[in-house]
Amino acid sequence: MNLINKKVTHKLFGMGSIVKQNDSIIEIHFASENKMFVFPDAFEKHLKLQDKSDASSLDKIIQKREMERKEVEWKKEEERKQQRKKLELRLEHEKLMKHHKLHPESQMVFWCDMEEQNHAFSEWNVFSGAIKSGNNKGKPNKPSRLHQNSAVLLTAIDASKPEKDRRILGVYMVNEDFIGKLCEDGNVPAHSKYKLQLTEQESDQLLFWKYYMNKKSPQTMSWNTGKYRYFDNLWMAQILLDIVSLKSDPKERELAQQFFKHFCKMNQITEQELPKPNGALMHS
């Protein structure tokens, strides 16, 4: 907006005329001397344009500038809030890591439909589902037992087959820095290295109920409801050990062996003391 030669009034210096102008400074010639002012800030307090049309246009510029300033301030405040939140989460993460106690059933078995199978093995991630009732209905389930010692077992069952034929499709350790108690979106991402997918032939030989057992009803093989359930750390170790023996490809077998050793270390399990599988299939 060009204000050169425009007439202004100053509360102290009286009438004047604008003789110079740039994006941040204007110079005004008054009867006694020339004065420099910050532009457009001075028009908010000390100066007034004589021409009403010019004054209205300038007011719009000032209002727009003020809105932009407030937006910048708001963004800065949001960044500060995000930084504070990240710091709080990091401190909470460190506290949980320091004081974490192994839960004997901190493994997750997941029931995959066809779409979830494709997603699980392309993205190496599962969603724990939504809460069905109560105050938090619709919010993601928080897999609170899962920690860095946890693995996720992916299973499926053909629609025409009974529950006892549920197959194991694959398995992965959770991401290196994953803590279920801090998981807000229900997504459980995989470890960068420890993740295994079984071939269809391998999967047919690895039935879930060989390992899993409802301790209150040892012979019962029913899933009932829910996308996932927790299960015993020892059972996961048994599954991983059997995957090692199933893998014929040298590279895959080596990864499976490393996975098993890593899992046992994280869960304080000794391979020599690992019991044989004793799931519901062994009692049927």
Rank of each mutant, 00 (worst) to 15 (best):
F39C: 05
V174F: 01
K20W: 01
W223S: 07
R69C: 04
F37L: 02
D113H: 01
K11D: 12
G129N: 08
S128C: 15
K164Q: 09
Q63E: 10
K181Q: 13
K6C: 12
E200T: 13
R167G: 04
V126K: 00
S222T: 09
K142F: 00
W124I: 06
L207M: 10
S144R: 11
P277H: 04
T220N: 05
G170V: 10
M221V: 11
K132I: 07
R84I: 11
G134K: 01
M1L: 06
E202W: 00
G14V: 03
E271V: 14
W124D: 07
Y230F: 13
D242N: 14
K227E: 02
L207G: 05
S56E: 14
R229E: 10
W124H: 05
D158E: 14
F39Y: 15
K276S: 15
G129D: 07
E115N: 12
L182Q: 15
Q63I: 02
S128A: 15
E71N: 13
I62P: 09
W235H: 11
G16D: 04
K95G: 02
D54H: 10
K137Y: 00
A151M: 04
G129S: 08
C112A: 10
S150L: 01
K60H: 02
W124E: 05
M108F: 04
S160D: 15
H29V: 04
P143G: 03
K137E: 09
A280C: 02
L3F: 13
R69I: 05
D113L: 03
M97Y: 04
I168A: 05
L87C: 04
V38Q: 12
S56T: 12
E116F: 00
N135P: 05
V171C: 15
E73I: 07
L91V: 14
V244G: 03
K251L: 08
D23N: 13
T220Q: 08
Q21Y: 00
F127E: 08
L198N: 12
L47C: 08
Y228W: 12
K52N: 13
S53L: 09
F121A: 07
L102K: 11
E68S: 12
L255W: 00
H99W: 07
E44I: 10
A55F: 00
Y172S: 12
K101W: 01
G170E: 08
F259K: 12
W124G: 08
N141E: 10
K70P: 04
D204A: 15
V244R: 04
K7Y: 01
L241G: 04
I239T: 05
P104W: 03
D204G: 06
R166S: 06
A120I: 06
D242A: 05
F263P: 11
E71S: 11
Q21E: 06
Q268D: 11
E176S: 13
T155Y: 00
L154C: 10
K276M: 13
E123Y: 02
N224S: 08
S203A: 15
R69M: 08
K247A: 08
P275M: 03
K261S: 11
K86D: 12
K276H: 10
D242P: 06
